[in-house]
Amino acid sequence: MKKLVAGFAVALLPVAALAQFPDRPIKLIVPWAAGGDTDNIFRPFAPLMQKHIGQPVVIANVGGASGTKGAKEAKDSPPDGYTIYGMHDYIHSTYYTGVSDVNYTDFETVCLVSSTPSVLTGSPKTPWNDWKSLLADAKARPGQISVGATLGSTSHFFPALIEKAAGIKFKYVSYEGLAPRMNAILGGHIDLTDANLTQKGKVEAGQLKFFGIATEKRNAEMPNVPTLKELGVDVVYDVNRGLMAPKGTPEAVLAKLAAACAATVKEPAFAESMKKQATDVRYMDRKQYAAWLKQNDDLNRNLAKELGLSKR
C-alpha cells in the first residue's frame, strides 16, 4: 500500500511540477560549509537567481567528507527542480581517487557559472622568497615540505600537478577547506597550500606569500605575481563552479532553471561580487557545460592515473 501510494505520488510529481514550476522555494545545495569559497560564490548568486525564477532560492550548506556528503544528498533528492546543486571540479577528482561514488553523470547540467584560478601560497614563516629558492629547497629535501590540502580534491590535485611538472615531492597534510588551511598556514604549521587571489589582503600585509598563479597570463589585480608558466612550471589550473540538478529532472523544468541561471550570470551585480572573490564569470549553457564536463572528466581520470592517486 505504502509503495503504491508513494509510486503514485512520484508518477504524479513531474506533471504537477510542469504545471507551474516553481511554486515553492528552491533549495540550492552547497556541499561545503558556509563562508568557504563555493559558498562565497553561490551566496550572491542565490538572491539574483531568485529574481529571475520568481521563488526564493535557499542555500543549504551540506558540508563534510571532502564535499561528497552534499553530492550524495543532491543525487538522492527528488528530481523535481526544487533541489539544485552547486558543484565544482572536485566531483571528478573525488570520484577517481575513490573518495566517493558520485560522479557528474548522476546529474543534469544547468549552467556553468564561474572559474577561479589557483595560486600557490606559502606561510610567512617559510624561508623562501620566490619560486626559485622554494624549488631548490624542495629538490634538496624531497618529501619534507608540507602542503595542506583537502585530500583527493582540487587543492590536492593542484600541488600534485606542480610536483609532477617541477620534478619534486611534497608531503601532504589533511586540512579540509580553505579556512582551516589559513589558520595553519598563518601559524606556520604547514608550508604551502592552494589558495586564490581572495587572500590578496593578507599577502600585502606580509602574512602570506604568493609564489605563482596558475593562469596563462598575469592577473591585472596583482601583476607582480608571476604565472607558473613563466617560472617554467607548465601548470594551468582553475576551479570551475556550476549548477546541476538531479538526473531525471524534467526537460521543461531544466529549461526554466537554465534560463534563470543564464540571466543571473549576466547580471552586472554578479560580476561585481565575483570580482571580490577574484573569480571570473564563466558562462556555459546546458549543452556546452555537458560537453565541457565530459572533457574535464577525461582530463581528471588521466591526471589521477598519472599522479598515482587513481582508485578506479
Binding site: A6, L13, P25, V58, A60
Partner: peptide, 16 residues
C-alpha cells in the same frame, strides 16, 4: 520559519 526566516521544512512524500 518557512515564510519569514526562509528555513525550509520537510515536505511529505505522500502528500507533497
Amino acid at each position: 520559519f518557512e515564510r519569514y526566516l526562509l528555513v525550509l521544512l520537510p515536505r511529505g512524500r505522500w502528500t507533497g
